[in-house]
Design a protein around this nucleic acid. Structure first.
Length: 526
RNA sequence: GGGCGGGUAGCUCAGUGGUAGAGCACGUGACUUUUAAUCAUGUGGUCGUGGGUUCGAUCCCCACCCCGCUCACCA
């Protein structure tokens, strides 16, 4: 047995814990399909959110761990429930009035409000795939609409018609009396309106494989359960899908946890074997409230990626999936720095430690070397005080600490510089409040500009600092701090800032004079 | 009511059956000139409560307390 496998079989990292459960499962009962199938589900009623990403990232980590300990291949299916009826119009998409006309129709039957895809469901599916591809996940995408219409689901749907009573017995037990009256596991799609109907089923014909119902205008219809003419209610849909695909593993958030026995029972009624489960905790916002699409709290994937690396997000997802964790802007810098700390630690670690290292799981066992010689939290600080949206200026500061560093040789650091200046652009610069200079301050500023105009030689930070200080002294500032405060408030729009000589050296003497001129002309405070 | 998670330094959180950790914050020093964006260093915790297992428990087991989430209509 290899050193890796030996250590992996004993690792306490959660992906290995899960992988071992999966391995036990297939040892007892090897899958006829010759591989292990992991599934993640996606509801394309809105844009993919960070939880969807997390589910795929975590499932992929388990898959990677499984492949390290088993000789059976593992596949990952990303299943989009796009035959689901659109229950409400999302409030963050264009043309809501158009969408309103298509309520209750399958998402793949609703026109794309963005006008770029064949349907709204296709659009959202494409968004999901774009995100997954950006991260380099290996997966097979399956559309529920295709799955139903292509007939791949038919055998299980026919069995559901045969065992309708058994399914209903499981379902009704979980429902209140009121809902029991109208419940059916089959949701017929109206042949004329194309809407997914939540109507009582009057008759199920297992031999014909059809269901009969009455629509809201009193007309009676009989439609096949197969071929996409009927959809299954979501709980039976889960179990039926597991049975049809022979799914071995699926994780979901704890809001689904109570339903596990129901999903499993349906799966078994339909001849399947219930997969292994993993219930993860939900994400909270900075106030400890659950993150939900409708509330719009928490972070989007795009927001995270605007201010930190993909790997830092993967690192966040690796951490403690069974603990409810806060997901908001403040956790980003730490995620980035922790990720790089683990990359650095990896090199000197024994195999057992490596398998517990998040970097192993983020990079499928082969993490790169970190070139992040300046911590991201420091970069943010630095970018904030310099208040520059220009990566080159930030790089000039970085070279004071790390002269050997550069954008080409340190791509991860360069990316972090880009993220830090994005942060400055989006949060620091808009918060700046410039004020006009007072009379004495204006005179001192004009004096400083004049002395800078006569500057010769290199822009030495210490020499420039001496000039700045001399100007303050000559104009009678007491305490001297008032002079520096004035510089920051008038020129930089903040009450604190960098050591000013150093700032002038890096910002540029001519540029500083231009900045003073604009301030004295009242352009900054305006 | 069922299920799940958390309770460790002032704050946010790591962590391990063998003397308790980080970041931030705070204190001090490095600069004869505001500030820290740097470096060094220090203060700081009966690891929720009570019991059990153990040579030894913050960690494992049991009970309890507090906080939060989640499910019960829909997905």
């Amino acid at each position: 047995m290899s050193e890796l496998r030996d250590a992996a079989l004993r690792s306490r990292a959660w992906p290995f814990e899960e992988a071992r459960r999966l391995l036990d499962r297939v040892r007892r009962n090897p899958p006829a399909k010759g591989h292990v199938l992991l599934e993640t589900g996606y509801g394309p009623s809105g844009l993919p959110h960070i939880g969807t990403f997390g589910e795929v990232a975590r499932t992929t980590m388990i898959r990677t761990a499984f492949e390290a300990i088993a000789d059976i291949p593992a596949r990952l299916v990303c299943f989009s429930d796009d035959l689901d009826g659109m229950r409400k119009v999302p409030d963050n998409v264009p043309h809501p009035e158009m969408l309103r006309e298509h309520l209750q129709r399958p998402l793949t039957a609703v026109p794309d409000p963005f006008g770029t895809h064949a349907s709204f469901g296709d659009h959202n599916n494409a968004m999901l795939r774009r995100f997954l591809d950006t991260f380099g996940f290996e997966y097979e995408f399956v559309s529920a609409t295709d799955f139903y219409r292509s007939g791949r689901f038919d055998a299980v749907l026919l069995r559901a018609a045969e065992r309708y009573d058994a399914i209903m017995a499981v379902m009704l037990k979980s429902l209140r009396e009121e809902r029991q009256q109208t419940y059916s596991c089959f949701l017929p799609i109206h042949p004329e309106t194309g809407r997914v109907l939540y109507v009582p089923i009057r008759h199920v014909d297992p031999r014909e494989g059809s269901v009969t119902f009455t629509d809201n205008r009193g007309r009676e219809w009989t439609v096949p359960v197969t071929g996409g003419h009927c959809k299954l209610q979501w709980k039976p849909d889960f179990g039926a899908r597991w049975a049809a695909l022979d799914v071995d593993f699926e994780m979901y958030g704890k809001d689904h946890a109570t339903n596990t026995p129901i999903y499993d029972a349906i799966c078994e009624i339909l001849g399947g074997r219930a997969p292994e489960h993993f219930v993860y905790e939900l994400f909270l916002d900075q106030h400890g409230e659950k993150i939900s699409k409708s509330k719009g709290n928490g972070l989007t994937i795009d927001e995270w990626l605007a201010y930190a690396s993909r790997e830092s997000l993967a690192h966040f997802m690796f951490q403690k999936p069974k603990t409810a964790r806060r997901l908001h802007f403040d956790v980003i810098p730490r995620a980035e720095d922790d990720y790089h700390a683990h990359l650095r630690a990896f090199t000197g670690q024994e195999m057992a430690q490596r398998l517990d290292n998040p970097a192993w799981h983020i990079h499928a066992g082969r993490p790169p070397a970190s070139r992040m010689v300046v911590p991201y939290s420091m970069l943010l600080n630095l970018a904030s005080v310099v208040a520059t949206p220009d990566p080159a200026r930030l790089w000039a500061f970085i070279r004071r600490y790390a002269p050997e560093a550069g954008p080409a040789s340190h791509p991860d650091l360069d990316a972090a510089v880009g993220h830090a200046v994005a942060y400055v652009r989006d949060f620091v610069l808009p918060a700046r409040r410039f004020r006009a200079a007072g009379e004495r301050e204006a005179a001192a500023l004009a004096d400083l500009a004049a002395r800078l105009a006569h500057w010769e030689g290199v822009a030495d930070p210490e020499a420039l600092q001496a000039v700045v200080y001399a100007v303050g002294r000559d104009h009678g500032f007491e305490p001297m701090r008032d002079w520096f405060r004035a510089l920051y408030e008038v020129l930089l729009g903040a009450s604190e800032g960098p050591r000013f000589g150093g700032f002038v050296a890096l910002y540029g003497i001519a540029e500083t004079r231009a900045l003073i001129a604009r301030a004295l002309a009242g352009e900054l405070a305006a």
